[in-house]
């Protein structure tokens, strides 16, 4: 028993070291921009860079639109599959997993071919069109995460009975989804939304090949040309990601509790 505890601690320490040592090293390196002393110079340079602000804001806006598109596609789809078509669930799950096995570069080349300026749907001929295509592409990339999060949320409620209870009280589909289903899976939707946000903020391939002024290509450009700033940016990105995860945890406290399973 004692020996078991010892090895458990050894594994824990090794795991923690694997996670924390590169992080500490990156933080330490990001603080060494000024010769001989630790300083926040690298952070000041990065945050003061107008390119950083512009690209970051662009990616934030794209992320918001991606989340909205994802919610609009995934929530009604997952809901309908649970309610009326459980038999096609394996097929839909397979489709939502495809973005994990098909590289983004394949998708984006497909887009360029399909929606180039000479195609019948010339999304890429204008900036708004290209931005819309980027949002659609990101919604595809985020599909596995968004679908799974929403589907897990729907599993915790009795979708069919709640739907029927709302129907018999006179509610139409819009009211049922907006006032009964969505509020009860909101935390799951938010989890999916934050994962989508994290994917979009750091994504490089699609943004670069569609020539969009996004944060990913900016990050890559900085890494290629600077020493300390990329380390500072990595830490900033890390803080944003962990901030998102913390928000999920905080918001989950406000989730509606199941009547049958008080938590």
């Amino acid at each position: 028993m004692k020996s078991g505890r010892f090895w458990a601690w050894v594994v824990f320490v090794l795991g923690a070291a694997y996670f924390f040592i590169p992080l500490i090293a990156t933080i330490e390196f990001s603080l060494r921009m000024r010769r001989g002393v630790y300083s926040l110079d690298a952070y000041k340079v990065v945050l003061g860079d107008s390119q950083f602000q512009a690209t970051f804001m662009f990616s934030v806006v794209v992320a918001i639109f991606t989340i909205l598109l994802g919610v609009l596609i995934v929530v009604p789809t997952a809901y309908w599959i649970r309610l009326r078509m459980p038999q096609i669930r394996p097929i839909v799950e397979f489709i939502t997993l495809l973005p994990l096995v098909i590289p983004a570069i394949v998708i984006v080349f497909g887009y360029i071919r399909m929606y180039g300026s000479n195609s019948p749907l010339p999304f890429l001929a204008t900036n708004p069109g290209a931005n819309a295509l980027l949002v659609i592409g990101y919604a595809t990339l985020a599909l596995p995460y968004m679908y799974r999060a929403v589907d897990t949320g729907l599993r915790t409620i009795d979708v069919r009975t709640l739907t029927e209870a709302a129907q018999i009280l006179g509610a139409g589909w819009g009211t049922i989804i907006s006032r009964v289903i969505l509020p009860n899976v909101l935390i799951a939707v938010l989890s999916g939304a934050f994962l989508t946000f994290a994917i979009v903020i750091g994504e490089f391939t699609m943004a670069s090949l569609l020539n969009r002024p996004a944060f990913g290509p900016y990050l890559q450009n900085l890494v290629a040309n600077r020493a300390y700033e990329p380390a500072a940016l990595s830490i900033i990105a890390f803080v944003i990601t962990w901030g998102c995860m913390s928000l999920i945890q905080i918001l989950s406290r406000f989730a509606p509790k199941s009547a049958n399973r008080p938590n």
Binding site: D158, T161, E164, Q167, I168, L169, R179, P256, N260
Partner: peptide
């Protein structure tokens, strides 16, 4: 007719109260 056009009340075995709504909001839903 669809269920929401029938003006029928129903009580389910599994209660089916909306977990995100208070008792008053549940009763006032219809």
């Amino acid at each position: 007719l669809k269920p929401n056009q029938r003006n029928i009340g129903m009580v389910f075995q599994a209660y089916a109260l909306f977990p995100n709504l208070t008792v008053a909001q549940n009763i006032g839903f219809g």
